[in-house]
């Protein structure tokens, strides 16, 4: 087993009467591809928000690379090497696709010189390569606001990848992507993750994607992991088939 990269330990978070995280724990090893599945409202996105600093747990700790990151800001966690894409893509809507990506590359390279024009960024070639990964080279010069949700989703992932994170959280990466393009996108994405030795955790509702691309699956229910195992074990688990695959997906 490779090195432990992330450990979430007994995370608790309550919103009013809703227990969004109820002792959620997960250990993630380097180069794993963990799929998080579960019905809506099970606490999957809350778990990502807790691990990336968007929300703070009322109890429990999150460790990344052995360091306690529970109290850190999203910015500090990002700088440590944790990237994320969002369920609702978080992009700079009024800017072009290439501006979004070049800004991410500037953030990574800390290139803030006022004498450098963003559109003449030295990492422009890498920006086009990132767009190629998500198959959106043609959309590079378009303003993000004009693009459909599925394309924004992929740009959101490309932006996260631009930071070269050691670990990336992706919240439903292929939702909004047409079914015949899903595997194509995931194939390229997986190759990019492999090339960068990036560990990935992704929330997914499409069990074909889970079966094909996850090395491990965590089934979320009631704000915690109800079952965990290989895709084969989980997707053939009677209870999971009934409660998650049968109803939620």
């Amino acid at each position: 087993m490779s090195a432990l990269i992330l450990e979430a330990r007994d995370l608790e978070l309550r919103f009013g009467g809703v227990q969004a995280a109820n002792g959620a724990s997960l250990k993630v090893h380097a180069n794993e591809r963990i799929a998080i599945i579960g019905p809506n409202g099970a606490g999957k996105t809350t778990f990502i928000n807790l691990c990336t600093g968007y929300l703070k747990p009322q109890a429990g700790r999150v460790f990344f690379g052995g360091s306690d990151i529970t109290a850190l800001s999203p910015r500090a966690i990002t700088r440590l090497g944790v990237g994320r894409s969002f369920q609702i893509p978080q992009l700079f809507l009024e800017n072009t696709v290439i501006e979004n990506l070049l800004l991410a590359l500037s953030a990574r390279e800390r290139t803030w010189s006022p004498f450098l024009r963003l559109d003449r960024h030295p990492k422009t070639e890498e920006m086009w390569a990132l767009l190629d990964i998500v198959g959106l080279k043609d959309a590079g010069r378009r303003v993000v606001r004009e693009l459909p949700e599925g394309m924004r989703k992929l740009i959101d992932i490309a932006v996260a990848l631009a930071l070269e994170p050691k670990l990336i959280f992706m919240d439903e990466p292929t939702s909004g992507v047409s079914s015949h393009e899903k595997f194509q996108v995931m194939d390229t994405l997986t190759r990019a993750l492999d090339a960068r030795a990036t560990t990935a955790i992704f929330v997914e509702h499409d069990m074909d994607v889970v079966a094909r691309y996850a090395s491990r699956v965590a089934v979320w229910a009631g704000g915690r992991i109800a079952h965990e195992g290989t895709p084969d074990e989980i997707l053939n688990h009677p209870e999971v088939r009934e409660t998650v695959i049968g109803v939620g997906v």
Partner: peptide
């Protein structure tokens, strides 16, 4: 010149999406 630079675009990003800006580590 500043508004065309990465810093100027980051400034626009505050208006557009501060959450993403923070998640770029900025």
């Amino acid at each position: 010149r500043y508004l065309l630079s990465p810093g100027g675009k980051a400034l626009e990003a505050i208006k557009s999406n501060e959450t993403r800006l923070e998640y770029l580590g900025v």
